[in-house]
Amino acid sequence: MLIKVNAEKVILEYSTVGGLPDSIEYTGTIPDDFEAKFKPSFYMLQNDEIIENSNYVEPTDTPPDDSPTSVQEAINKLGEATAKMANDDNQIKSAINKLGLAVADLQQTKEVK
């Protein structure tokens, strides 16, 4: 059996067939329930024997924090401000256009009289 261990001799992975990069070959006694109970870090090597890791802690299933970071929040605010400025700019251009049309109408009215 090939096993991959870390510096503390905690077993991270194993393989009974094929290869396993960065692994060592283990030829000692394997606990009967090794495959059924195996989880990364659950077992370790001690004095060339596989034993249960007394420091093993079951990983928590906490969901990842999907809330935006402060940088993402700042980028979002900048985007909102940019969109508002573009909208304001369009409103100003529209008002100037209407003002220009009104001036043209006044000029035509003045020429008609």
Rank of each mutant, 00 (worst) to 15 (best):
S67V: 03
Y43E: 05
N47T: 07
F42Y: 10
A74I: 07
K77L: 15
L78Y: 12
P40K: 03
V57I: 14
K77F: 11
M85Y: 14
I50Y: 04
D32M: 10
T60R: 14
A81Q: 12
A83S: 11
A81W: 01
T29A: 14
E58C: 01
P40S: 06
D48L: 04
P59I: 07
T29R: 14
A74G: 04
P64S: 11
I75S: 07
D61S: 15
A74D: 07
A83H: 05
A74R: 11
D48G: 03
P40D: 02
V57C: 07
V71C: 00
N76K: 14
E49T: 09
D61N: 15
T60M: 12
L45Q: 04
E58Q: 11
F42Q: 03
K84C: 05
S54F: 05
F34E: 04
Y43D: 02
I30H: 02
P68Y: 06
I50F: 00
N87S: 10
T60G: 09
M44S: 06
D66C: 10
I30N: 01
A81H: 06
S54K: 11
Y43P: 06
E80V: 10
F42L: 11
T60Y: 10
D66L: 15
T69H: 01
E49N: 12
M44V: 04
P31C: 10
K77Y: 12
S70N: 13
I51F: 05
A86Y: 08
D66I: 13
S70T: 13
A83L: 09
E49P: 00
I75L: 15
Q46F: 06
D65W: 00
A36F: 01
Q72A: 08
E58I: 10
A86I: 09
F42P: 02
F34C: 00
T60W: 08
E80C: 00
P63L: 14
Q72T: 04
F34Y: 06
A81D: 08
K39I: 03
N87K: 13
Q72H: 03
K84G: 02
K84H: 08
A83D: 07
Q72E: 10
K39E: 07
M85A: 15
Q72M: 08
L78G: 14
L45A: 02
S67D: 00
I75W: 09
E49M: 13
P64E: 15
M44Q: 06
Q72N: 03
I75P: 05
Q72K: 08
Y56D: 11
E73S: 11
P63E: 15
P68N: 05
N76R: 15
P63Q: 14
M44P: 00
Y43R: 02
S41R: 08
I75T: 09
N87T: 09
A81E: 11
L78Q: 14
K39Q: 09
Q46L: 09
N47Q: 10
E80P: 00
T62P: 00
A86H: 08
A86L: 11
A86R: 12
Y56V: 10
E73M: 14
Q72V: 01
A74M: 10
F34L: 04
G79F: 03
D33E: 14
F38R: 04
E73G: 00
